[in-house]
Amino acid sequence: MIELRSVAMSYGGTELLSDMTLKLMAGSFHFLTGPSGAGKTTFLKLCYAELMPSGGQLNLFGQDVRDLGRDDIAMLRRRVGVVHQDCQFLDHLPLLENVALPLSVAGRAVDPQELKDLLGWVGLAGQARALPPQLSGGERQRAALARAVILSPDILLADEPTGNLDWEMSLRLLTLLVELNRMGKTVVIATHDLNLIRAAKAQVPARVLRIQNRRLHLAGADL
């Protein structure tokens, strides 16, 4: 699904990531760890083509990202659900419309019952009409997750999804992500929360990747 071959990423002449080689298989569950500023967010941005690698080859769904036009990237993002730490909503639209936004963008009809079920799944059925600024941090994260999965993407990328949440809410979100993985979705979570990784490994066979010194390492054994 996502394949990196000696991928490098530079910002203004400074190499942030280098020689990254990885193959993310369908249905896998990965954690991405590393110190702040190591390049976790940059790695995720490469995975949904917000950034282009400065070196190496990056294939998304079998296509070299350098060959993709702007419309191709848009279509690709419908197959990749993204959950950011800051969630990124349209604050003037109610939660219901924010969650259904990928459907509107894709020109697909919104099934009210499916939407209701989805909001129920993330525990936000009662907040459908609320505006994003009226939601708590945990509610916003769950809403972002609902939006990320509404198009039934093949891959789910989450960037510090529990960064602003208490432990109970973090576990609740993790449970949802594990459920998605059991449904066959590939999940990649960037986090520095080792407790969250331990909790996940108790439920799914997750691999842990660590970015250190600009390179990607498999770091599952030390947890």
């Binding site: 949904y48 917000e50 419309d71 279509m75 993002r77 990124q88 349209l90 936004l101 963008v105």
Partner: peptide
Amino acid sequence: GQVIRVLRLVGARDVF
């Protein structure tokens, strides 16, 4: 800008 970034994130094409 924020609206445009969100729309691009969820797969909106430029024409949309």
